[in-house]
């Protein structure tokens, strides 16, 4: 069978589908000062599955932690129009489960083009393999 660390090099999704892969990628992102990208990506996935009674509070928590401060790594990578859409949704009593989908897509695109290829060339990954 293919060892997990070779699977991680196939796609970002293969990497994010494996606990050890996530851990190593997160360590790499911590070194680079951008672990929030990964946490935000998982927060968006988790948000979709969250029960309706927790959703409004969770939307505020995600918004406050990653988006409201324009100097944060996540906020800087999300388009202004997407942020303004999220700001409108956060104020609603029953936020849409898909309200973070566009932002998640933008952050994922950034990871696929930038941090994920860097990770595959990093000492951390090469030493692991």
């Amino acid at each position: 069978p293919t060892p997990p660390y070779l699977k991680w090099a196939e796609s970002l999704h293969s990497l994010l589908d494996d606990q050890e892969g996530i851990q190593l990628f997160r360590n790499f992102l911590c070194q680079e000062g951008c672990a929030d990208l990964l946490d935000f990506w998982f927060a968006c996935s988790g948000f979709r599955k969250t029960s309706q009674e927790k959703r409004a509070k969770l939307a505020k928590a995600i918004y406050r932690k990653y988006i409201v401060d324009g100097s944060g790594i996540v906020s800087r990578q999300i388009k202004a129009a997407t942020k303004s859409f999220i700001r409108d949704c956060v104020g609603r009593p029953h936020p849409d489960p898909a309200m973070f989908e566009q932002a998640q897509t933008e952050i994922q695109g950034m990871m696929e083009e930038n941090t994920y290829p860097l990770f595959l060339k990093s000492d951390l990954y090469l030493e692991y393999t």
């Binding site: 994010l16 589908d17 494996d18 606990q19 996530i22 946490d39 998982f42 927060a43 968006c44 996935s45 988790g46 948000f47 599955k49 969250t50 927790k54 509070k57 969770l58 505020k60 928590a61 995600i62 406050r64 932690k65």
Partner: peptide, 20 residues
């Protein structure tokens, strides 16, 4: 009542793949 941080952590963990 959960704090916002706890809620966020719980949400992130819920989206992670389970141990294989």
């Amino acid at each position: 009542i959960d704090s916002e941080d706890d809620l966020l952590q719980e949400c992130i963990s819920s989206a992670m793949p389970k141990k294989k």
